[in-house]
Design a protein around this nucleic acid. Sequence first.
DNA 1: GTCGATTACATCGTGCGCGATATATAAATG
DNA 2: CATTTATATATCGCGCACGATGTAATCGAC
Lengths: 151, 151
Amino acid sequence: MTHDAPNLDEFLCFAIHSTARAINRAAKPLLDELGLTYPQYLVMVVLWAEDDQTVGQIGEKLFLESSTLTPLLKRLEQAGYVRRARDAADERLVRVRLTETGRALGHRSDCTSKLLRKVLQGNEVRELRDRVVSLRERVRAAERDDALPTD
Amino acid sequence: MTHDAPNLDEFLCFAIHSTARAINRAAKPLLDELGLTYPQYLVMVVLWAEDDQTVGQIGEKLFLESSTLTPLLKRLEQAGYVRRARDAADERLVRVRLTETGRALGHRSDCTSKLLRKVLQGNEVRELRDRVVSLRERVRAAERDDALPTD
DNA sequence: GTCGATTACATCGTGCGCGATATATAAATG
DNA sequence: CATTTATATATCGCGCACGATGTAATCGAC
C-alpha cells in the first residue's frame, strides 16, 4: 500500500455493515416463503408482539422514519397482512392492525424462522448481541451529543 | 402479547441491522465533508490500500455485486475521484484507478475519520469486531451449504 | 374561539443492494 | 478455426433508508 490508508479489515463498522447484509441474504430464502422482505418481517414481529400500533410507535421500535415505513406498510397492506386506518380520536395517527392472514403468518413464521434463530438467537450469541446493542446505543448517544465519548 | 411471537430484542440480526444503520447515520456528517457516502467511502478505502483494481476485485473485498458497484463507481468517477477504463489485455475487465484528487482525499480522510475510528476501531472493540466477522463468515458458510451448522 | 406552533404522517429525490438478465470478450473444445 | 462455454461487467426493476419538504390535525397561548 502506498501510504498509511485505513485497512478495511480493521473497521468494526465494515464488519457490522457486511454482516448485516450477509444475514439479509441468508434470511431471504426463508422470508420468501412468507412473502416478506426482512424489514417487512421486522414490522410484522413488532405487530405480532403487540397489535394495533401507530406508524410512529413502530418506527420508534425499529428506528425507522415515516418516509421508510409508509410505503413499506402500504406494501404489507396490499399483501393483505395489515390494515391501515386513521385513528378516530386523533386523525393525525395511523393505526396499523394485523389481518387474520397477517396474524396467521406469525404461527407459520414460528416454524420457518427456526433455522434463522438457531444461528442468530441461541444462547451462545446472547453476549455478542448485547455487546452490539450497547455499541449501537453508544453510537446513537454520540450522534446526539455530536461529540463522541473518549472512552 | 397475544401469543409466543419472537421478541425483537432477542434477535441478534436486528441488533446488527440497526447498529449498522446507526453507524451509517453517525458517520454521515463526517463523510459529507469528503463528499462521499459510506459505501463510496468503503470503495475508496479499498483503492487507497491498493490502487488500480478491477470491479470484481473491489466487489470481492466489499461483498458487492457489479449491479451495485457499477453505478456507484460511475458516481465516484463523476465526482472526479476515480477513472474507469477497460483493460487493454482483457477487454472484459474494467480497471478502477484513483485520480490525484481521489488520492489526496485519502490524506484528508486520515484526519476527518479519526472521530469515527475512536469509537469503531479502538482496542476495546477489537474482540467485538472479530466476533462479528466470525459470525458473518458462519452466516456466509451456512448460506453456501444451504444447511446451517447445528453448533 | 383564533392563530401560531407542534405533531404525525405522507411525498419526493437520491443512493444503495441485489436478483435476473443482457452483452461482450475470452477461453476451451472439437 | 468455429462453436460452445465461461467470465466480467452492465442494465433493469424493486424495495429499503433517509433527508428535506409538504400537509393536515391537534395543542397552546392569549
